[in-house]
């Protein structure tokens, strides 16, 4: 009897410890994401499911559900929740989509994508970040995310073409190999700008062999949508 009680207490504690911030997460989705007009049910569900606080450094844990990007070390950031959701929604993902992410960082965006699609490929160039992301994603039980530590510039030829490519680190040019590895009708989302400055999200589309871009929205702590 004591053993059963002990097991119940133990599992209850484990549950509280692992998912005790579910209310914050739901509030984040309701206010920061739905409140700003994102409606894609798959994206919202994914954002509610992924424990963001597990993807930020211990010192930043209390701010994990704030409406802002947070530093994760090595001069990198975990994007503001709204941006992660927006990039996910704009990629128009289906369950059977194959997605490539360039810039794993903490692994948060990959985890959100993995809640929607069967397979996510993600590449991180900073070894230390890549290794800790692998550890984190494994401990959280993500089996459909494949992390490669290396230069994302060349994409991941073996698994190309991709339905969507999400580039989370800004670059001063769009790598030609990534455009080549984008499927006909595929979409690529890229932030243009530095992490703490103002970024503009850009959508690159490949339709009938023609490549077009669309600057979607400028973003920083809060989206720069006009309030009037």
């Amino acid at each position: 009897m004591i053993q059963i009680l002990f097991s119940l207490v133990f599992f209850s504690l484990l549950f509280i410890q692992t998912d005790n911030r579910i209310h914050e997460r739901h509030s984040m989705v309701r206010h920061q994401i739905e409140g700003r007009g994102l409606r894609d049910s798959l994206t919202l569900k994914a954002m509610r499911a992924v424990p963001r606080h597990r993807f930020v450094p211990e010192a930043q844990s209390r701010n994990a559900y704030d409406d802002s990007p947070l530093p994760i070390g090595y001069g990198q950031t975990i994007s503001q929740p709204y941006i992660v959701a927006y990039m996910t929604e704009i990629a128009h993902l289906q369950k059977n989509s194959t997605v490539l992410e360039i810039g794993t960082g903490s692994g948060y965006q990959a985890a959100v994508l993995a809640e929607i699609t069967d397979t996510v490929y993600t590449i991180e160039i900073v070894k230390q970040l890549g290794e800790s992301a692998v550890e984190r994603l494994t401990s959280l039980g993500y089996k459909n995310i494949f992390v490669k530590i290396g230069d994302g510039y060349e994409g991941w030829k073996e698994h190309a073409p991709f339905d969507a490519i999400i580039v989370t680190a800004a670059a001063d040019h769009v790598p030609p190999p990534l455009i080549q590895q984008l499927k006909e009708g595929g979409r690529m989302v890229i932030p243009v700008g530095a992490p703490f400055f103002i970024q503009t999200l850009m959508l690159v589309e490949k339709k009938e062999g023609k490549i077009t871009t669309r600057s979607l929205m400028p973003v920083r702590f809060v989206p720069f949508t006009r309030s009037d």
């Binding site: 230069d151 510039y153 001063d172 040019h173 769009v174 030609p176 455009i179 080549q180 490549i211």
Partner: peptide, 17 residues
């Protein structure tokens, strides 16, 4: 070895950067 130069490169460029 991974630093490349092509600021604002055309999306119609298909060769080596």
């Amino acid at each position: 070895p991974v630093m490349r130069f092509a600021p604002g490169l055309s999306l119609n460029y298909h060769s080596e950067v």
